[in-house]
Simulated scan of single mutants.
Amino acid sequence: MKSVFLALGLTALATQATALSCLRPDPIETFQRVAAAPEGYFVLYGQMTFDESALPAGVSNDNIRDPDPIPAQFTGKGLTMQGFTSDYVSPVTLQVGCAGPWCGSARSGVDAIYFVRADDPPVTMQAGPCGGMIFEEPDQATLDMLTSCMQGGACSPQPLQ
């Protein structure tokens, strides 16, 4: 009987350990996905500043709903056909998403690419548990490839490093 409970316990642990299996997000694949979406998106590059103490603290099994939105400020550029050339300075909202005990995150004051729905201001930066909408500290090759994607040129995902 003990072995049955042990097997059930191990199965439950294995299910929880693999419950959130995320593929490594790629900014070019994200660009392709949002470009095909029926709703409009902005691709922004710059810094979002906010109170990091408002982020969810640690991993908890109590996350049955997403945390409250966090007010933030964005300063940077929007992607145009010429590259990241359109000034974009605005209040924004950071919405952290959770999947059970796993929550997304972001860092204040870090250069990043943000994919955001082009809704009425303030736009909402989504930090999901699997990432994919915020890409911190991108290299110049990624910024150049996003410009190429926007122009209808080469648009291939970055190789894994």
Rank of each mutant, 00 (worst) to 15 (best):
F42C: 00
A17C: 08
G128M: 03
M125V: 15
C98H: 12
A17V: 08
A72T: 10
L13D: 05
E29S: 15
Y114C: 05
A112Q: 08
A7G: 06
M145V: 01
D144Q: 14
Q158T: 13
S148M: 04
P56K: 02
S60H: 07
T11V: 14
G152H: 10
Y88T: 04
K2C: 10
D144W: 07
Y41Q: 00
L146Y: 07
Q140P: 07
K77V: 01
D26I: 01
A17G: 04
T85R: 15
S148T: 09
P25A: 08
A37N: 13
P67S: 11
L10E: 08
G9C: 15
V43N: 01
Q140Y: 05
M48F: 07
G132P: 02
T75P: 00
A36M: 05
C22N: 12
A106N: 09
A54D: 01
C103S: 07
V92I: 14
L23D: 10
Q16R: 12
S21K: 06
E137L: 06
F135K: 06
E136L: 13
A7H: 04
T147A: 14
A127M: 06
G46P: 05
Y88I: 11
V96F: 02
A17P: 01
D87S: 12
Q47T: 10
T49D: 13
V43I: 15
I64F: 14
F5P: 03
G58E: 09
G100D: 01
Q151R: 15
D111N: 15
T93S: 14
A127T: 02
S60A: 07
P25N: 12
P101S: 13
I113L: 15
Q140E: 13
S3W: 15
P129E: 10
